[in-house]
Amino acid sequence: MKYNLSKVKRVSKPVLALMYIVCIFFAILSLLPFIVMIVNATRNTYQVQQHAFSFVPSKYLLSNLKILNSKQTFHPVRGFINSMIISSGSTICAVYFSTLTAYALVAYTWKLRGAFFSLVLAFLMIPMQVTSIGFYQMMYRIHMTNNFLPLILPAIASPSMVFFMRQYMIPSLPLEIVESARVDGCHEFRIFNQIVIPMMKPAMATQGIFSFVASWNQLFLPQILLTNKKRYTMPIMVSLLKGDIYKTEYGAVYLGLTLTILPLFVVYFLLSKYIIAGVALGGVKG
């Protein structure tokens, strides 16, 4: 620093107070819906009807859980397992194959490399939803609806993750190490698995979190592909809570909602620092 920081004029106290008020207001705004949801999950229908807004938890958590289970449609455990299979499967596919594709783009010089990278860039912005009709028809024809594979395997081709991995790999992967492994007689595929993958771990972890969360939250494709109730994912389960059978069971609905995002709460509060850093990293990829 060339200039003295202490000379920087600070904002006046009232302005600073105003800033804090706005920040706290927005923090409350972000948290309040979740707090109301969690508190109401512990209250019964009568209490919610009397005062829908309350900060005081009650003691009806278990009875709400019983109501939720008695209706036979909302199965948080089954939804959790299904979502877990799809999200883990697609995350592993996305992270591993995106790193492999990025490695192909960074470490080797090949004739179609430029053209291939342009293709990746061209499909960076195309969301899967616009292709859904053809996707559904194709899967229906080969009897793959109600199967998890159509929701897992497409992750092998994740253009945005390939782009990110390439940007990360260029400055952080010293090609000399790859070269010396080659001299030692290491096979190319082994070099990738045993040298490149460990070096890319930080990027793979952050991208993995985002891929997992995105897959977990996905509604459109699972909704059109999975018609069998046993195959429903968490977000599809949520749409069941809107049904008529829960119309008067306020507490149970709030509890159901809480259960669907409980895993995300846990993940977020354990990893929020890395997640925020990951978002920031994604923003400066340009």
Binding site: C23, F26, A27, S30, L31, P33, F34, V213, W216, N217, L219, M234, P235, I236, V238, S239, L241, K242, V253, L257, T260, I261, L264, V267, Y268, S272, K273, I275, I276, V279
Partner: peptide, 18 residues
């Protein structure tokens, strides 16, 4: 503040809507 402001983004949109 950053953690709290970003939090709704990570939550299932379907759940948020209901």
């Amino acid at each position: 503040f950053k953690i709290v402001f970003y939090m709704p983004n990570i939550m299932t949109a379907a759940t948020v809507a209901v």
